[in-house]
Nucleic acid binder design. Sequence first.
DNA 1: GAATGATGTATCGAAACGATATAGAAGGAT
DNA 2: ATCCTTCTATATCGTTTCGATACATCATTC
Lengths: 172, 172
Amino acid sequence: MLDFAVLGLLMERARHGYELKRALAELGFWKVSFGSLYPALRRLEKRGAIEAVSGTGRRKAYQVTDEGRAIFDSLLQADPDASETERAFQIRLAFLGHLPREHRVQVLEGRRTKLSTNLRSSREILIDARSNSQDQDRYRLALMEHAMRSTESDIAWLDGLVAAERGVASAN
Amino acid sequence: MLDFAVLGLLMERARHGYELKRALAELGFWKVSFGSLYPALRRLEKRGAIEAVSGTGRRKAYQVTDEGRAIFDSLLQADPDASETERAFQIRLAFLGHLPREHRVQVLEGRRTKLSTNLRSSREILIDARSNSQDQDRYRLALMEHAMRSTESDIAWLDGLVAAERGVASAN
DNA sequence: GAATGATGTATCGAAACGATATAGAAGGAT
DNA sequence: ATCCTTCTATATCGTTTCGATACATCATTC
């Protein structure tokens, strides 16, 4: 998945390692370490997805190859299975602009369905957690309740994104 | 950190691996894999923090030893440094009930400070992301904005928890 | 010109992940 | 009764990610 994110960022322009790390952090959801990033760059290079175009000083900028673009597209278009991580979804979302509209809506609604399911099971869990909890568990309950509210807000947000897509669609 | 979480759960009662996995998932923030969990159990066992008390059938229940309780306490009381993960904080929070009130408030406010700092830098990043973005980046901006709103809501939640602690304190 | 701090690449050991193998127990269908 | 599927449960394998640290270069400032 890191490979996917790196490819996506390199799609716009060549970047070197440090810059990629910063860009990933600025997306807000992933403070990737060098111990993840540099091996990832080497992996991608070995697969022929990216190539080094040495930059200023000791910088090593990388750019995507045609092969890399093909890999990125296939990763982007592969329909996300049910086991997709939170993070994997966020990466997919960050680059959703590269997909056609119908496909975008599909991804968003797939995610929405998953969150709704999660929410339902959380509700059940919470109900019987509440019924047999000690005072000590107060924070655990608070944590669960807050997580549920966050999920609800995520769902509302997804609905907003879908509505925006449809709005744009009808405006076209 | 997984070790910490496992110890915390075993503090209440003996549990076997599968049960621990379920319990961790039910806390809502971590779907730990067996490939993480079983090695963690073996680690803890080797350190003398837990011991197996074989249960029904092929189940292997574990219980904390005195040594384990000591380790748990020291992990709980160690003041969380700035580099503490989201997940690490959540684990700490889940077991915050084991700490005295003043210490609890301290942990909550430490977290609040960190989130506020993050929020400020996110705001700056977002401002110049907005100023030079293509239409393609629409989803990336949406992601950043949503992350910021989530953080704001987290902060408000933390404030609520602190207020509750103080409320309880004055009621006592 | 020396100290300091920001930038940048790199690597190491440990931890976590995701997939998969294996197998007993439970419950239902034929 | 026995077959079949599903759930429960432990375990391990190879890969990825993490966190810490080393180290080198450049810019600033004292």
